[in-house]
C-alpha cells in the first residue's frame, strides 16, 4: 500500500476563503502572508472605493423601486466582496428615495465595483489554495488560471493545456454572448436598463466589459423583437462561464495539490459487474 503525502497546511482553507470574502486580504493575513494580504486589500478595495467615488454610490439606485430590498443587491457581482457591498448598502443604500441624475462616471464606477467583486472571488481561490499548497507558486498559478477563465471564456483551459476544451468553451460562450447581443441589438449592455441580466453577463469578462464600453450608452428608441431571447442568451453565457471558472479552478487545484480529478458518477463496466451478496 502506498500513501500519498498530505499537503502542508498553513491554516483552514475554508476559514481563509471566508475571511477574504468579508474583507479582501484578511484570509492571507490569517495564513501569515502579510504582503499578499496588504496587496489584495489595496487592489480589491481600492477598485471598489474608486468605483464608489465615480458612481457616487448610486449603483443600486438602478434597481426599480419595487425590486429594492435588503437582499436585492446580493444578486450582483459585488456580493463576492461582501464587506464592501455591506458598506455600500449601509452608507448609500438605494439613495434618498427621489429620482436624481446619475453622475457622469456611473457606468465606469459601477463596472469597477463589480470588478472588485470578481477579483475578490479570485483572491478567495488564491487563499483557499495557499492554505494547503507547499509552494506559493501553486496558489498563484491556480488564481491566475481562474482569473483568465473569467477574462476570456476558454483562456483558463487553454493555459492549462486543455486546448480542445478551451476552444469549445470559447466558441459556445462567446458565440452565445454575441448572438444575445445581436438579438437584443446591444440593449443588454446597460446595467441601468437590465440590472440583473447585466449581473449575469458580467461573468463572461472582457467581451461584456468591452461591449459595454463601446455600445453601452446607445439609446433604445423602438421595440426590439427578440430582446428577451437576447437578454437570456447573454446572461446565461455569463453564468455558464462561472461554471467554466470552477472547472478551471478544480483542475488547477487537483494538479497543484495532487488531489484526484473530479469525475462524474458514470457506470463503468467494472463497476457494473460488482455483485452484492446478502
Amino acid at each position: 500500500m502506498t500513501l500519498t503525502p498530505k499537503p502542508a497546511r498553513r491554516g483552514d482553507p475554508n476559514v481563509a476563503a471566508l475571511l477574504t470574502w468579508f474583507l479582501p486580504g484578511a484570509g492571507h493575513l490569517y495564513l501569515g502572508q502579510f504582503a499578499w494580504g496588504v496587496a489584495l486589500f489595496a487592489l480589491v478595495d481600492g477598485l471598489f472605493f474608486l468605483g464608489l467615488r465615480l458612481s457616487g454610490g448610486m449603483t443600486f439606485e438602478f434597481l426599480d423601486p419595487e425590486l429594492r430590498s435588503p437582499f436585492a443587491p446580493a444578486l450582483s457581482p459585488e456580493i463576492a466582496n461582501l464587506g464592501g457591498m455591506l458598506w455600500q448598502m449601509r452608507n448609500y443604500g438605494f439613495g434618498p428615495g427621489i429620482v436624481r441624475p446619475f453622475p457622469d462616471g456611473i457606468v465606469l464606477g459601477s463596472m469597477l465595483t463589480a470588478l472588485s467583486g470578481v477579483l475578490n472571488a479570485v483572491a478567495m481561490c488564491h487563499a483557499h489554495t495557499a492554505a494547503r499548497a507547499s509552494a506559493p507558486e501553486a496558489a498563484r498559478r491556480t488564481a491566475l488560471a481562474t482569473l483568465c477563465a473569467w477574462l476570456l471564456p476558454g483562456l483558463g483551459h487553454f493555459l492549462q493545456g486543455r486546448r480542445t476544451r478551451g476552444a469549445i468553451v470559447f466558441a459556445l460562450l462567446v458565440g452565445c454572448f454575441v448572438l444575445g447581443t445581436v438579438l437584443a441589438e446591444g440593449s443588454n449592455l446597460s446595467r441601468e436598463r437590465h440590472f440583473y441580466y447585466w449581473a449575469g453577463q458580467f461573468g463572461i469578462g472582457l467581451p461584456a466589459l468591452l461591449g459595454e464600453l463601446a455600445f453601452g450608452s446607445m439609446r433604445v428608441t423602438r421595440d426590439i423583437g427578440f430582446v428577451d431571447a437576447g437578454l437570456v442568451f447573454a446572461s446565461v453565457a455569463g453564468m455558464l462561464n462561472v461554471l467554466a471558472m470552477i472547472d478551471v479552478y478544480g483542475w488547477s487545484e487537483s494538479k497543484e495539490l495532487g488531489l484526484p480529478l473530479k469525475r462524474s458518477e458514470v457506470e463503468t463496466p467494472a463497476a457494473s459487474k460488482v455483485e452484492i451478496r446478502l
Binding site: 469549445i168 459556445l172 446565461v236 467554466a244 470552477i246 480529478l261 462524474s264 458514470v266
Partner: peptide, 13 residues
C-alpha cells in the same frame, strides 16, 4: 451550451 458546460463541469477529463 448548457449541457456541454454542465458535462465539462461534471467531469474534468
Amino acid at each position: 451550451a448548457i449541457v456541454t458546460l454542465g458535462t465539462f463541469y461534471a467531469d474534468a477529463e
